[in-house]
């Protein structure tokens, strides 16, 4: 953060002393953090790969090579979980970013009570998933829930929400007496309901980050564009959006990692709606839920580890793709400023 001019302003003798002095005590400063992270967060990654090559109970591991991976890739449950994970991620990432951007942009217009709104929007993020999932399970309750009361108010048919295994496109098609082919059924309404709840929970974080990014854009640029006669849509398209793209990129990376790791919302919603793990007909099984089930219910340590490793590889690939293809565009936009 210190610019070269600032540094050269120091006394030359002192500067040289500071530069050449090695602080051996630095290792003591990083030791506590490093030990904890190495033991509980770095070493376990290699251990997990090792476990994934074995089967059996904890103290009687038997080496089976890549068998667990072969079993996962051959299992229909695994592919269902993978598809569910992708649907869930697509729904939550897209909605949370779009809504986050919209509300941040509206707040940025300098409205009264900006800080009150900001606090209110962030509140769901602070709450425990266990607590808020109980409330949302009631919202989606088929007989007395708020969601169905709202549907009734506009004269629509009530839905079964969290206990509905049918795909959303299948349901929409059903309204018009259309039969939708199986591959187009879409995520189950149960999974969509959990996604709505997840967006409610996470959008506040995006709003705060986007608002910070917006505040960082120099006001003079807007003034200049307005003098040139740009309307508010053009201002957003040609100034706000490009200058915000580094922030957008950051949020995208964080959101992808976060949504592929989602577990608490799905687990807690299944529990609160008195559903078995995986929801109605297993339509809310995601990779994390599947892994947890294999571990907690069946004690398949090797197999569960293989699923976890596959999930990590997937997240790693998506993150790298993001840095490779989206990242550079965000950077050039910023440099073009």
């Amino acid at each position: 953060m210190v610019s070269p001019t600032q540094e050269s302003g120091q006394h030359p003798i002192m500067r040289r002393r500071v530069l050449h002095h090695i602080d051996w005590t630095a290792y003591l400063y990083i030791l506590p953090a490093f030990v904890i992270l190495a033991v509980f967060h770095i070493f376990p990654v290699f251990y997990a790969i090792d476990i994934s090559l074995n089967k059996g109970a904890i103290n009687q591991f038997k080496f089976v090579g890549l068998q667990n991976y072969a079993r996962a890739l051959a299992s229909p449950d695994f592919w269902t979980a993978l598809v569910n994970t992708f649907s869930f991620a697509l729904m939550t990432i897209f909605a949370a970013i779009a809504l986050g951007l919209l509300f941040a942009y509206l707040l940025y217009q300098g409205v009264r009570g900006q800080s009150v709104y900001r606090t209110v929007y962030f509140l769901p993020y602070v709450l425990s998933t266990v607590g808020s999932s109980i409330v949302w399970a009631w919202v989606f309750d088929p007989s007395s829930g708020l969601a169905n009361l709202a549907l009734k108010a506009i004269g629509a048919q009530p839905l079964r929400w969290l206990i509905e295994p049918k795909g959303v496109f299948q349901l929409i098609g059903g309204q018009f007496n259309l039969s939708v082919p199986a591959w187009l059924h879409g995520p189950s309404l149960a999974l969509v309901a959990i996604a709505i709840y997840t967006v409610w929970q996470t959008v506040g974080y995006n709003i705060v980050i986007f608002l910070a990014g917006l505040t960082n854009i120099p006001g003079e640029i807007y003034d200049a564009a307005q003098i040139d006669g740009a309307n508010s849509l053009q201002l957003f398209r040609y100034i706000t959006f490009p200058l915000l793209s580094p922030t957008l990129f950051f949020v995208l990376v964080i959101s992808i990692i976060g949504s592929f790791q989602s577990f608490n919302q799905i687990y807690a919603m299944n529990t609160a709606a008195a559903q078995a793990l995986g929801g109605p007909l297993g339509t809310t099984y995601t990779m994390t839920v599947y892994m947890f089930d294999q571990l907690y219910t069946y004690s398949n340590y090797g197999y569960a580890s293989a699923i976890a490793v596959l999930l990590s590889v997937l997240i790693l690939i998506l993150t790298l793709l993001n840095f490779r293809f989206v990242g550079p565009r965000a950077e050039t936009q910023e440099a073009g400023e």
Binding site: F40, V45, A48, I51, A308
Partner: peptide
């Protein structure tokens, strides 16, 4: 370590 999903370290840490 920020990139590592929590789920991967879960089983080794449990053991």
């Amino acid at each position: 370590t920020m990139m590592v999903p929590f789920e991967v370290t879960l089983i080794p840490n449990f053991i």
